[in-house]
């Protein structure tokens, strides 16, 4: 009896110790990475601090001098583009999700024309630059008498573009749902539509949500391309406008970069939370 309890206990506590050692190692590593980030960040700020470091009269390092007065004066104007950037991103991602779902279902279709339509769409979109697609909607369509506003062109192009890429994620999600799931639903008497809605799609979406989060984050940055139409006053458009007119592009672009980066960090944080919650759920 005694030996059994001993055997039962010692490997558990040993495993526990190993696990804790592992955790400690990871924690130390993360702390060091955090400190290094801080240092890199300080260096970056220092680079733009406009200082001269001299020994006697001899300048050894001269850091970049930026016009902080310009920045303070224009920060609200540039920040005013955040709303548009987010609006374009949200509308485009919703459109992209719809397109991706249709394309993914088409890709799984056994009916050749539908399968072809889906692969044709994905191939055409992936084979041409996003920049071209935005201009196609904005500049080429008017020649055919279809005039779209900058924002509509942007959302159409971004949505179609991301939809094509995301369809691959959705397809993987749909095929991750085993055949047994469909059979169980069919055996209960569900119609193919009910099986798709109640059983397959919820599982496929759960699988596809983390990569969709990544796509949304890239979307917020690719939305900057829409500024090229000149009619959507989002972050990038505002930064280039004030930067060019006052010959302060350096400062203007730095501000825009800080906004994009901060936005990305915030979204990545929520994305991480979401992912952690989903993985706790059922895998």
């Amino acid at each position: 009896m005694a030996s059994i309890t001993n055997e039962g206990q010692s490997p558990t506590s040993q495993a526990e110790l190993l696990y804790q050692a592992q955790l400690r190692k990871e924690r130390v590593f993360r702390t060091h990475v955090g400190i290094s980030w801080g240092v890199l960040f300080l260096i970056l700020i220092f680079l733009f601090s406009g200082q001269d470091i001299k020994i006697g009269d001899f300048t050894i390092v001269q850091t970049i001098n930026i016009d902080t007065e310009f920045m303070l004066k224009n920060i609200t104007f540039i920040a005013g583009g955040l709303g548009q950037t987010l609006l374009i991103s949200v509308l485009s991602i919703l459109f992209a999700i719809m397109m991706a779902l249709l394309a993914a279902l088409g890709r799984l279709s056994k009916f050749p024309p539908i399968y072809a339509l889906s692969t044709f769409y994905v191939s055409l979109i992936r084979g041409t630059p996003l920049y071209l697609q935005i201009f196609f909607f904005f500049l080429a369509l008017p020649q055919l008498g279809i005039v779209l506003s900058g924002i509509v062109s942007g959302v159409l192009a971004l949505g179609l573009n991301y939809g094509a890429y995301m369809s691959e994620t959705f397809r993987a999600g749909l095929s991750s749902v085993g055949k047994g799931q469909r059979e169980a639903a069919m055996a209960l008497g569900m119609t193919p539509g009910q099986t798709m809605r109640r059983i397959v799609l919820p599982q496929a979406l759960r699988f596809a949500i983390p990569p969709m989060g990544n796509d949304f984050i890239s979307m917020t940055k690719d939305s900057a391309l829409v500024s090229a139409t000149g009619f959507v006053h989002e972050l990038m458009w505002r930064a280039t406008k004030v930067g060019r007119s006052q010959f302060n592009s350096l400062e203007a672009l730095i501000m825009a970069a800080v906004f994009y980066w901060t936005l990305t960090l915030i979204l990545t944080y929520f994305q991480g939370k979401l992912e952690a919650r989903l993985s706790k759920g059922d895998r």
Binding site: G178, G180, Q181, E183, A184, L188, Q203, R206
Partner: peptide, 16 residues
């Protein structure tokens, strides 16, 4: 299918 109930080797419960 409404008159038959089926039990599978791999259970096939709906995980969600």
């Amino acid at each position: 299918r409404l008159k038959t109930g089926m039990v599978f080797q791999e259970f096939n419960l709906f995980p969600h």
